[in-house]
Design a protein around this nucleic acid. Structure first.
Lengths: 334, 334
DNA sequence: TTGTAGGCGTTATCAC
DNA sequence: GTGATAACGCCTACAA
């Protein structure tokens, strides 16, 4: 049979409760007793049953991540980062329930709460701004941390970068290169980051004294294919842009693919910029300029906020981004 | 308080055990009773405690996936596919413990067995061929399914494609294009697929009456950077290859990046081929030829084998791959 | 600082 | 077909 606390307690000549105390690092255990028990735990290779712990105690030692991003890289980074931190804390991460449909999502989260009794939850866009999800979590009193929230910033701790300022910085970079007709491909409107980045683009144009031309703003979805189709639309304009800023790198890669297909030289005839939730930029050529988001760091911070919450129940951690300016040749029009 | 079986049984006017029977779809429950109980379960929105079920029963309703692949796409596809199937079966997937170091891996798996009491495990390369892992699993009697195993094929059900034949097909494609000096960048030697693909490359050369030139075979690691460095080495040869076949697409993308950097025209001066564990090929330009591996399908099959094992305890499911031949211009040497 | 009693919510066993 | 009752392995509360 399996090794239980009982076995350990017998071996160590102490009560079950004392073993439990050692296991949970509780106070009021004699140093000597603790050492003896630890040794027996080690020797017997005892591992407490997580089911029994969850049933008897208040914690389940399991947390979940809700992450349905169009980019596998983003998902991977988020999950690996959070998992690493959880492991250090002796907590298990449930493989994320994806967020395809919101109705299923709510049900899934309820199952996580009722059935697993998760100790906490991390939300990424777009679920991070889903009012029904937030309401459910608050009603059940489940601790949660949000990544890149776009609203209701006070209801939970959160981690984010200043998407608006980042997009403005990148747009400014393009303006500095000499561009005045800069196309912009927005992200999926379900993601708050999408609106934030669009706003930054407008900010920089305004600062640069450039009028916003609605024809230059196209609705993307954060997917590669939408980058392609919107780039085609932009380049087919009577007055096409000399630079295109896509709200993420997947779309920027699509823009690049179209440019090559049409024989538009990059960056001589067209500068392309993206927003690097992911390392995709590393795979494309020629390089495009990109805003580098510290996804892995965001994962770490989110996990930390969940696993060891601070005083402030609505603590906001802002992280830095980096502007990677590449292909900085001035545009050659015509 | 939370809703328990007891509440349901009281509402439905039956015993706790009967409710349990309905919940677990056991036989010997009157149709009428079953309907009544189900209705109450529905009405009360009752969700059984997974901890209690695991503690009392033989199953934990949790399975795990061991998947440490250099490609996030591969990980994503694997995990999503398996998770989907698990969800249908009412089983939870633990977020994968990655396999960075083998010693931690064994410990981690042991924890999964002892602490969580997982119902099963899915192994992908390189863990799929780790003798210590296989031994542990067999010793503990934990059901497991392997993806792309390279050896010990009899010890468990498995899912795979014929990597050797696929690599040969692709090499043959390059030969048919007119190439005779074809470079090959191998994958990480820890992965059995690496040797299988290398063997396929040699097979095709042999069939084509082309001698294997050891200088044209370079040791990669399945990572983008190794594709770059090995491509540099290949292109620096006195007699450089006119085509390079990398054992996966990440490396092929690295080759492509180097070609562009060196001003080598693709595919006019250099044909590039890869092995598509992932959709990366879609992001690079110009397109490279690739072997498309049905990662998602493999995930489904692996999950199916784990969740509803058949008669044959060492069932092997072979899946089809596709040869995507692109950039098929004949090489222009010099 | 340590131990005892009771219960967490389900499934298994064995009667009826 | 259905229902008592005893586990399952641990934690909480309280006592010593």
């Amino acid at each position: 049979m399996r090794v239980t606390i009982k076995d350990v307690s017998r071996e160590a000549g102490v009560s079950i409760k004392t073993v439990s105390r050692v296991l949970n690092n509780e106070k009021y255990v004699g140093a000597e007793t603790r050492a003896r028990v630890s040794a027996v735990v080690e020797r017997l290779n005892f591992r407490p049953s997580s089911a029994a712990r969850a049933l008897a105690g208040k914690r389940s030692f399991q947390v979940a991540l809700i992450c349905d991003n169009p980019s596998p890289y983003y998902v991977y980074e988020m999950q690996s980062g959070i998992r690493d931190r959880c492991e250090e804390a002796g907590v298990r991460l449930i493989a994320q329930p994806y967020d395809r449909q919101s109705s299923r999502l709510l049900d899934e989260i309820e199952a996580l709460i009722e059935s697993i009794r998760i100790d906490g939850l991390i939300l990424t866009p777009p679920a991070t701004d889903n009012p029904a999800v937030l309401a459910l979590l608050r009603a059940r009193g489940v601790p949660f941390v949000r990544v890149s929230p776009g609203s209701d910033v006070g209801v939970s701790p959160s981690v984010f970068i200043d998407n608006r300022r980042a997009a403005a910085d990148m747009t400014r970079h393009l303006i500095d290169l000499g561009h005045s007709r800069i196309g912009f491909i927005t992200g999926d409107p379900d993601f708050a980051t999408s609106a934030q980045r669009s706003a930054g683009y407008r900010d920089a144009l305004g600062d640069g004294g450039i009028a916003v031309d609605p024809a230059l703003i196209r609705p993307g979805t954060y997917g590669f294919a939408s980058g392609e189709s919107e780039a085609e639309a932009l380049l087919a304009l009577a007055q096409p842009p000399t630079a295109i800023f896509a709200a993420n790198d997947d779309m920027a890669a699509g823009v690049l693919a179209v440019a090559h297909r049409l024989g538009v030289r990059v960056p001589d005839q067209l500068s392309i910029a993206g927003f690097d939730d992911t390392p995709i930029a590393g795979f494309v050529w020629p390089p495009l300029s990109t805003v580098r988001q510290p996804t892995r760091q965001m994962a770490y911070q989110a996990a930390d906020l969940l696993l060891s919450p601070g005083e402030d129940a609505s603590e906001r951690r802002e992280l830095d981004y980096a502007i990677i300016a590449r292909g900085s040749t001035a545009p050659v029009v015509g």
